[in-house]
Amino acid sequence: MFGISLIVLILILTLMAQSRDLKESLAGYETRAEALSQQIEEEQARTQEIEDLKQYMLTDEYAEQAAREKLGLVKENEIIFQEEK
């Protein structure tokens, strides 16, 4: 009877130790899941910014701005001021 009680006690202690280890693993996985969720939200925001920029680049306003900056084009009757060197 004592032997059986000892074996049952050992089994219960083993199960408790494994349960504790599983809880620690679960907490680690939950932390990782939260971090990944945050990363997904950041990437979705970045994707939206890229999509907005893509839509802006299709407008005439962007084409005009690019022509002014890169090619130095100006509108009619527009005066350009330059600094003296």
Results as ranks from 00 to 15, higher is better:
19 S>E: 10
83 E>K: 15
64 E>K: 15
18 Q>V: 11
3 G>K: 13
8 V>F: 05
37 S>K: 07
74 V>P: 00
12 I>K: 05
64 E>S: 12
15 L>P: 00
31 T>K: 15
28 G>H: 08
26 L>M: 12
20 R>F: 04
75 K>N: 11
42 E>N: 09
16 M>Q: 12
53 L>H: 08
34 E>M: 06
76 E>V: 01
50 I>K: 01
22 L>E: 05
53 L>E: 14
16 M>N: 12
68 R>V: 13
67 A>P: 00
1 M>D: 09
74 V>C: 07
34 E>P: 01
13 L>E: 02
17 A>F: 03
12 I>E: 03
32 R>E: 13
77 N>K: 14
45 A>L: 06
12 I>A: 09
58 L>G: 03
85 K>A: 02
34 E>I: 06
8 V>W: 05
31 T>Y: 08
64 E>V: 11
25 S>T: 10
58 L>D: 08
55 Q>V: 02
7 I>Y: 11
80 I>H: 12
22 L>F: 05
2 F>T: 11
16 M>A: 10
6 L>Q: 07
71 L>Y: 06
58 L>F: 05
19 S>H: 08
81 F>R: 15
35 A>I: 10
27 A>N: 06
58 L>P: 00
61 E>I: 04
28 G>E: 09
19 S>T: 06
60 D>I: 04
55 Q>C: 01
57 M>A: 12
74 V>W: 06
9 L>R: 13
62 Y>V: 08
3 G>A: 14
41 E>Q: 15
34 E>Y: 05
26 L>S: 07
11 L>T: 05
69 E>A: 07
3 G>T: 11
71 L>D: 10
83 E>F: 13
60 D>K: 06
71 L>M: 14
15 L>Q: 10
29 Y>H: 13
23 K>Q: 12
48 Q>H: 04
32 R>L: 15
85 K>P: 01
50 I>G: 01
10 I>M: 08
39 Q>M: 13
11 L>E: 07
84 E>W: 13
6 L>I: 12
47 T>P: 01
77 N>E: 11
66 A>R: 14
58 L>N: 10
45 A>V: 03
48 Q>V: 02
43 E>A: 07
19 S>Q: 12
77 N>M: 09
22 L>K: 08
49 E>H: 09
43 E>G: 03
8 V>N: 08
65 Q>K: 15
53 L>S: 09
77 N>Y: 10
81 F>Y: 15
56 Y>G: 03
7 I>F: 11
24 E>R: 05
18 Q>N: 13
55 Q>N: 08
61 E>P: 00
69 E>Q: 10
5 S>W: 03
29 Y>G: 02
84 E>M: 14
38 Q>R: 14
41 E>T: 15
80 I>Y: 05
29 Y>Q: 15
